[in-house]
Design a protein around this nucleic acid. Structure first.
Lengths: 121, 121
DNA sequence: TTCATATTTCAGCGAATATCGAAGTATTTT
DNA sequence: AAAATACTTCGATATTCGCTGAAATATGAA
């Protein structure tokens, strides 16, 4: 992962509301959640929410799809794992048995391919 | 970990120079690095570097100690691991065998106590 | 078609951020 | 004590950020 990409992701998460949005999506899993549900759970104005979703999306941390009149947002687990491995890269100076540099989270429905792609970067 | 603490850490890392500083310290290990060495490696003005170190320190991501006329900065691995586990909290919806929620990195010289303290939060 | 629901776009404003140059402080060397 | 080294503090500035309110767009229901 490039530094600038990591900075974008960290900046996107470095805001109280956005961090909660992202964590909600992480816990919701790969199927995601409708924007309206998120708005309700976190008590945010719809336009504010759009603003935050845009930033998360631009940073590569979430995806969207339309379902009827709702927009379904979902966390991109590869991005999250990639960020974690970037942060912890070479953190153990040889004590490899104690380190878990990649593939921190692999929820149901996420195939191995995405994880190994993140590992390669 | 509280959300506001995580936001502070993410904000501290959400800047190109600071992220590189932190990664350098992570790779340097628990003994840390003198400010001057960091300045040289990353080609940063000393005052700018102080500004960034202050933010990392305030966010709980690094520690300092004086050694002669040098200031030695070191990454706080518990903080890093705590942040990672906060981000990935409950990310696997029951597929626990595939998840590594805490203690991602435990370098030489970091005792177990610090890791288990992070786990408790 | 008309209305209701779900979300996005736009303009604007106060607050926070990153960097720079100049001056200040602490520690070691001479 | 004076000079050099290693950082830190201060003041100023241009940029970015997060929120609000009003209006617009897209889809579904009546």
């Amino acid at each position: 992962m490039k530094t600038s990409k990591a900075v974008a992701a960290l900046a996107a998460l470095a805001q109280e509301n956005r961090l909660e949005i992202f964590r909600l999506l992480v816990q919701a899993g790969p199927e995601g959640m409708a924007a309206g549900q998120v708005a309700e759970k976190l008590d945010l104005a719809p336009n504010t929410l759009t603003f935050h979703f845009d930033r998360l999306r631009f940073a590569g941390l979430v995806t969207v799809r339309r379902d009827g009149r709702s927009m379904i947002y979902a966390a991109r687990f590869e991005a999250m794992n990639g960020l974690v491995s970037f942060l912890t890269e070479n953190c153990c100076q040889g004590a490899q048995e104690k380190c878990v540099p990649v593939a921190v989270c692999k929820p149901k429905g996420i195939r191995d391919e995405a994880v190994s792609r993140a590992r390669r970067r």
